[in-house]
Design a protein around this nucleic acid. Sequence first.
DNA 1: ATCTATTCCTGGCTGC
DNA 2: TGCAGCCAGGAATAGA
Length: 260
Amino acid sequence: MPELPEVETIVRSLAPKLAGKRVLAVTFFAPRVMRGAPSPLLAGHSVLEVTRHGKHILFRFDHGTLAIHLGMTGKLLIDGEATPYLRAEIVFDGLRLLFDDIRQFGRMAWSHSLPENVARLGPDPLEIPAAAFVERLRGKRGRVKALLLNQAFLRGLGNIYVDEALHRAGVHPLAVASRLSTRRALALHGVIVTVLEEAIAVGGSSISDYVDSDGSKGSFQERHRVYGREGLPCGVCGAPIVRIVVAQRGTHFCPKCQRM
DNA sequence: ATCTATTCCTGGCTGC
DNA sequence: TGCAGCCAGGAATAGA
């Protein structure tokens, strides 16, 4: 499931290959991908740049922006082999970009400026200054896990990295955000940055289908300390990792290291 | 403002 | 071996 580090990895592998390339043709094999919106007219236009915005991949053209969200199982593959799950194809001058997505949670959005669902996202966790993060947290009365998953609060974190960051910060997932001390909030900001940077450095986490645009897997799953480790010993204190459900998401934490 | 439940989807798992 | 039933979950949406 691509979160910020996986999307960053994909963008880094796509950008040098696609920047400046001209689109020859676009085909949608699954109308669902565009969620009913009319298909963008891209043929003849060139990609100016490929960037990441939260978990979205933005293809900027001279006449608008195509935003791609990979959902749970979406992949963007350059010159990959067609599968039964091929949902869209963009043919460029010299190469083909395939959008493959088993579960079809992925989506594309087109806008002559910036798609609305992309424009309304919160700040990037790697860009927001620590003090601004602490200030943003203040007054939020929801559970910290739910808040960090909320893309309008902070864009790019998903279930894996929220669980991993909370463990590193020693913060219980059910803790009320506004009740975190400034010291804890600062610590949380710090570990969010380091866990994301560490994951980006090793190509993200490949726990199910995730691969980058060359089909390469990441290895950060080998460094997960809580995610997917229910019942296994905490690497810090040895207590068994517990799994509960918070905000309809499987939530993994150490009951000893992460107290309320 | 914040919460919960529901919908989308399908491979992979469990249990019989 | 086969098959039914359930699970995972990001985001949009509805309703409390």
